[in-house]
Design a protein around this nucleic acid. Sequence first.
DNA 1: GCGGGTGGTCATCGGGTGTAGACATCGAGC
DNA 2: GCTCGATGTCTACACCCGATGACCACCCGC
Lengths: 204, 204
Amino acid sequence: MTEPTGPRPTAAEAAPHATEPAAGRTAPRRRDAAASRERLLRAAGELFGERGYDRTTARDIGERAGVDPAMIARYFGGKALLFVAVLRAEDRSESFADLFDADRLAGLVSRFDRQGPGPVAQVAVRPYEDPDAYAAAAAELDRRVVGPLRERFVQEGDEQAALRAELLTAAFVGVVLARRAGTLPHLAAADRDELLPLIRRLLD
Amino acid sequence: MTEPTGPRPTAAEAAPHATEPAAGRTAPRRRDAAASRERLLRAAGELFGERGYDRTTARDIGERAGVDPAMIARYFGGKALLFVAVLRAEDRSESFADLFDADRLAGLVSRFDRQGPGPVAQVAVRPYEDPDAYAAAAAELDRRVVGPLRERFVQEGDEQAALRAELLTAAFVGVVLARRAGTLPHLAAADRDELLPLIRRLLD
DNA sequence: GCGGGTGGTCATCGGGTGTAGACATCGAGC
DNA sequence: GCTCGATGTCTACACCCGATGACCACCCGC
């Protein structure tokens, strides 16, 4: 569909995706590599979050982005490097997740309910097949979740700070993943307000 | 079920793994369907436990069992049904896992350290692609772990018995899976004696 | 003996994956 | 006008998966 309408694209064609490089730059170009990159990045972020790395195919990403999957290799060097790029892109927008801060915990659970736990959480529980993707996700997990927790324990003078931080992270990830997996029906269906106090009690 | 049932007095266990071509044919290889079934079952149990259902291939199972993977379809009706058969076979040997009983908890963690968490634990955190395998594992998880816990909470008069049971199961599964995944290094390397008190405290 | 059923091997199918590479098309600069 | 690099499209490859069925090897009962 979306007729090419001949060699002369006089009509603006109502750019179906409104890529919006904009920002005062040139007018939206019909062929815009930056926009394609961006859309691949966003679609990949969504799908990796929903299904994890392994179960997301390049074709799925391309379909959701409305971009040919071959572009993944062209722009990012392959699916694994696209994954790394997704993590780096989230890097800036994601805040640290202190599991002991009630508000942040609530926000985190809320975000997981909306967008899925994301590939970073999943990696705690199962390594990815691709070594690059695995290493990137593991580093990100440490930076975002385990690290802040460990630091808190260290400041408390806990000798087992690292172990305890990882233990709590693992438990939390288990809960969040299970909630989304749906295998445990009550956990999956529970209201967030009902669940949050239980989680807080678990982590204390 | 796996009885030899035949007049042949051969001992199934005598069958060596002598599938190596270099090893020669010194031992006349017996043709024993029951033994082949058994070895497929065992190899599948190990591999499903180590890697989960999805990441275990029929060819892997066949290779470890020293049996042609085509036998999986012949004897069990396919990989998914082999998985169900594995669960049923474990069914008899597995005891319930009351996470509040310190001894049983220790035994459970010990078994996971030895054999891997097994496909039943993994299903809590991620559905399997095959619906039959998924349903079987989910049922088994409820029967073995969630059920006993829920019952305990019900007897305590807890209104959220089902939810709490599933929450603790999810947290425990997260810890066990993470320990084996290795992404969280201290958790993976921790001594069992060091870890168990922390887990107990977490679940209380 | 020997026939036939049982057990095992193997090539192959149909489908899915990531991605490489040829080709088509656009758009900017000369 | 034109060229030519940038961008997008599409086919195809090489590899994996689970499963199938034809074919062969063995061994028991006759």
